[in-house]
Design a protein around this nucleic acid. Structure first.
Length: 337
DNA sequence: GAGCCGTGGTG
DNA sequence: TCACCAAGGCT
């Protein structure tokens, strides 16, 4: 081998060292980095799934005060748990988290699992979250791959394999395991993710300041990672009613699938809202849907349908519903109750 | 294995 | 304004 050309092993060690040294010097201070309590770590990881750090920072500590141990969440009603998650989205996360809390309380005797197999058995904990809990809580040498890790690795190695393909996932988990610092998995995993949030960002990487710039093979960093295109967004229009009476506000309690146990404004066909006064328009996005909601004032003598019920204004703050519903209701309630 | 799930910030 | 993106997991 040419003496000036580092071997692949040397390069791997150099990247590892550069990341850890940088992180120990400049790593940010987050609440979940001040604890090794596996429950506190798990909660942060579930909240951070597909959710930005600022959003989680605004909710994490208060939520943890409400549910400081798995037993606390296990003892809560599902309605209360859903309500506590409102605004964070992906509500299946909190259902799974509560199921996990119950499993820990009941099957593990309240002792937090410490093996990959036990963790992966728990609902809502996949390969990423399992590795995160093992490394951040216990400092166990478990690799993690998230959007940051795959982006950073794709650039470091100038790897054009689509990161969301089967082949790409396989490569990135293998690479993450190679790069992981066995002597300090906690710092290493934190480091590579933080690099992805600070310098090695999706659209405009700041390569001049990057601690790995000497080791990076990316020819055109901003063009990586390659990923398969997103599905096309679809537009929908909903016709919902606001029916406010002395008995409260009419709400539909959803009885199916993902939204089971959550409330929403009653929905009608365009035809059924004909003649009602239009109160306003709301636009919001839900995953791949772009929704336009037209809100109508329904007469007080509106007959509740099977899954519809009047909710008193006193009870309104404690029932779970999606953010857009909460917002538009508050906007149209007398003096924003 | 592709499609699905919520929301808020950002360029 | 709007498309894109985020510490993924489940079916």
């Amino acid at each position: 081998m040419h003496p000036s050309m580092p071997s692949e092993t040397e390069r791997t060690l150099a990247i590892r060292h550069a990341l850890v040294a940088w992180f120990l010097r400049e790593g940010k201070d987050y609440p979940w980095r001040r604890t090794t309590d596996p429950w506190a770590i798990l909660v942060s990881e579930i909240m951070l799934q597909q959710t930005t750090i600022p959003t989680v920072l605004g909710r994490y500590e208060a939520w943890l005060r409400q549910y400081p141990t798995p037993a606390h969440l296990a003892a809560a009603s599902e309605e209360e748990a859903l309500r506590s998650w409102e605004g964070l989205g992906y509500y299946r996360r909190v259902r799974s988290l509560q199921a996990t809390a119950k499993a820990i309380a009941e099957r593990h005797g309240g002792i937090f699992p410490q093996s990959p197999d036990d963790l992966r058995q728990l609902p809502g904990i996949g390969d990423y979250t399992s590795g995160a809990v093992l490394s951040f809580a216990y400092n166990i040498a478990a690799p993690i791959v998230d959007a940051n890790v795959s982006r950073v690795q794709a650039r470091l190695d100038n790897d054009p394999t689509p990161i969301d393909s089967t082949e790409g996932r396989k490569r990135h988990w293998k690479r993450a395991a190679e790069l992981l610092d066995p002597d300090n998995p906690r710092a290493y995993n934190s480091a590579i993710m933080e690099l992805g949030q600070t310098y090695c960002t999706p659209t405009s990487p700041d390569c001049l300041l990057c601690p790995c710039r000497e080791h990076c093979l990316a020819e055109n960093p901003a063009s990586l990672p390659v990923k398969t295109p997103r599905p096309e967004t679809l537009e929908e229009t909903h016709h919902d009613i606001l029916c406010l009476t002395g008995r409260g506000i009419l709400m539909e309690l959803q009885t199916n699938g993902r939204h089971l146990g959550m409330y929403r404004l009653p929905r009608r066909t365009a035809d059924e809202t004909r003649g009602m006064r239009k109160l306003g328009t709301q636009k919001y996005g839900v995953t791949r849907y772009k929704i336009t909601r037209l809100l109508y004032q329904a007469p007080p003598d509106t007959e509740p349908r099977a899954t519809e019920t009047f909710v008193s204004l006193d009870a309104l703050p404690s029932i779970p519903m999606a953010s857009p519903d909460r917002k538009i209701i508050l906007k149209h309630l007398p003096q924003g109750n």
